Simulated assay, not measured.
Amino acid sequence: MDFKTADLCDEFGGELEVSSYEFKSYGKKQKFYGPIETLKVFEDNVLVRKALETVPPGTLLVVDGGGSRRCALLGDRLGEIAQNRGLAGIIINGCVRDTEDLVKLDIGILALGSNPLKSNKEGKGEQGVALTFGGLTLSPGDYVYADTDGVVAAKKDVLSITL
């Protein structure tokens, strides 16, 4: 289904939260949406891999990495897992790496920036928790819509309502 976040804001402004962060796009898809699964980690991507391997196809994984720019939480290998499993996309409040390869993947990937350093591998973090960053308060099952204008979130699928 086609959409524009600007049109969603015009039609459903009272039901949406709009991110104050300007994410950079790293995947081939510039526009994506879906029900979300949440993940909270800090400079450790073990749970990112686990989530990418287990969340249902069509899910949009939102990773709150605490805004850290000191290492990457996603690279080409994890991006390929997400693409091959049919995830709707990935949004990271943190960094990615292998950006030359990520841009070739047929999936939406947004992050604050890039950093070539890999993350820790301790398995610390929480999945399925409420996240708050960039003016958004997100819970598992909420819907997130992303395009070149920005990221918006709703408690239900507003695209199922006729625009």
Rank of each mutant, 00 (worst) to 15 (best):
G135C: 04
S68G: 02
V144C: 01
L74F: 05
P56N: 11
G67H: 01
I109M: 08
F23E: 05
C9Q: 14
G128Q: 09
K4E: 06
E53A: 14
G79I: 01
N84S: 09
L131M: 11
L61H: 02
D101M: 14
D44Y: 01
F3G: 09
E43I: 04
I91S: 02
N120M: 15
G113Y: 08
V103S: 11
V151S: 08
P56V: 14
F3K: 07
I90M: 05
L78Y: 10
T162H: 14
A153Q: 00
G34W: 03
P35H: 12
V129Q: 04
E17A: 12
T99Y: 00
V144F: 02
V18A: 02
Y143P: 09
Y145I: 12
G58N: 02
L112W: 07
N93Q: 05
L105W: 13
K24S: 11
S119C: 09
G141S: 12
C71S: 10
P116C: 08
D157M: 08
N84D: 14
Y33T: 10
R97V: 11
V46P: 00
N84H: 06
A154R: 00
I36Y: 00
K156H: 06
S139D: 09
E17N: 07
L60G: 04
A82R: 13
C71N: 11
L52Y: 08
I109P: 08
T162Y: 12
T38E: 03
R97P: 06
S68F: 01
S119F: 01
R70S: 11
A51E: 12
L105Q: 15
L73E: 08
D64L: 06
P56T: 10
G94T: 09
I161K: 12
C71M: 04
T137Q: 04
V18M: 03
P56E: 15
E80W: 11
G123K: 01
V96C: 01
R97L: 07
I90S: 10
K29D: 07
L159H: 10
L16A: 07
E22R: 15
G123Y: 00
L60K: 07
D44T: 12
G135Q: 11
V151E: 02
F32N: 04
A51W: 04
N93F: 00
N93H: 09
D7E: 08
D142T: 06
I81M: 10
F42D: 01
L136H: 07
T99A: 09
L138Y: 06
A72C: 08
T54Q: 12
K124M: 14
R69D: 02
A88W: 07
L78Q: 06
A111R: 01
S25G: 12
F133D: 07
K104F: 06
E11A: 15
F42H: 00
G135K: 10
S139H: 09
C9L: 14
G135H: 13
K40M: 08
N84M: 14
A153T: 02
N84K: 15
N93K: 00
T99Q: 10
T59V: 01
T54A: 06
E11V: 15
V55D: 00
L159T: 15
G125T: 15
L61A: 00
